[in-house]
Design a protein around this nucleic acid. Structure first.
Lengths: 151, 151
DNA sequence: GTGATATACATGCAAATGCATCTAAATGGA
DNA sequence: TCCATTTAGATGCATTTGCATGTATATCAC
């Protein structure tokens, strides 16, 4: 039996398309609800997970896969909205610690409702429980560190 | 045997993360090669597929999952770069037909080399042939039309 | 210590994006 | 035919992004 070579694009094309489709749907739902976008959600969520310890911007940069200036300015906007505070970092004069405010937590909770509601039909209606589990598993494998292509 | 409910986020989170990771890697490779980004590639590719018939902007809008103004301006840039031409549309005075130029085709071919080379390690090194096939299949299911959430 | 390098974060400027709106041509009724 | 509605596409304006660079502190070699 001949096994066709694993065409990376057979994976990439539907992957990109599925991501874009779902992303668009969720962003539309959030906007319609008068809530911020997913990038705000992700940052708020990480801060909530971090609790009282807060997070340094460079930590968020890794967690969110954002460029350094991306985190810097995203945090700016969140701070202006009153969703986080910047605190001088004891022990590192260059740095700062970002902390979630109660209002930030409230907004994240509101967003979660909309987020989950928009996600559910986009995914659950097209996959069985077993398929979803298998898909998540395969995507997880895809995320393993690539073999040192960083220069 | 109890079957855990299908958590949509168990799929969405790695999906989004995998897409972003691979996208970033490919964009970086293209940039380093002094070539345009993936959005240009996608448009060039569709035009190449369309051949001499070309494509109407509204057709690209559907194929590329872009907003109307997105296609309008992307086409502007491609036209300024000499990669496509806009032709008045016989039969619809409002419309136009976008046609690939030879230079556009050449650039797309160059991009393809870099694109494919960057994609390969990101995907093939983490998945077996069978896994890749299964993953592509599951992602395909995910792309089925959602149950009428359009307003 | 002192100087060189590396790390953390900010920012000016140009380009891209989102949103609302505009024009023009097509379609559909009466 | 005439008017109302829909569709194709462009564009002004505000926001966001990307890129390069700037500033300040930390770390390391000596």
């Amino acid at each position: 039996m001949t096994m066709s070579a694993p065409d990376p694009f057979a994976v990439w094309l539907p992957l990109a398309r599925a991501q874009k489709t779902i992303l668009t749907a969720v962003e539309a739902a959030l906007k319609q609800a008068g809530l911020p976008g997913l990038d705000w959600y992700d940052l708020l969520w990480e801060l909530e997970c971090a609790g009282d310890a807060g997070l340094r911007p460079y930590e968020l940069q890794e967690k969110l896969l954002l460029p350094q200036y991306g985190v810097s300015r995203l945090a700016d906007r969140l701070a202006r909205a009153g969703y986080l505070t910047r605190q001088d970092c004891s022990g590192d004069g260059r740095g700062q610690v970002l902390l979630l405010t109660p209002e930030g937590a409230r907004t994240r909770a509101q967003m979660w409702e909309v987020y989950a509601a928009a996600m559910e039909p986009a995914i659950s209606s097209n996959l069985s429980t077993g398929e979803a589990r298998r898909l998540a598993e395969l995507l997880g494998k895809l995320l393993r560190p690539a073999p040192a292509d960083k220069i």
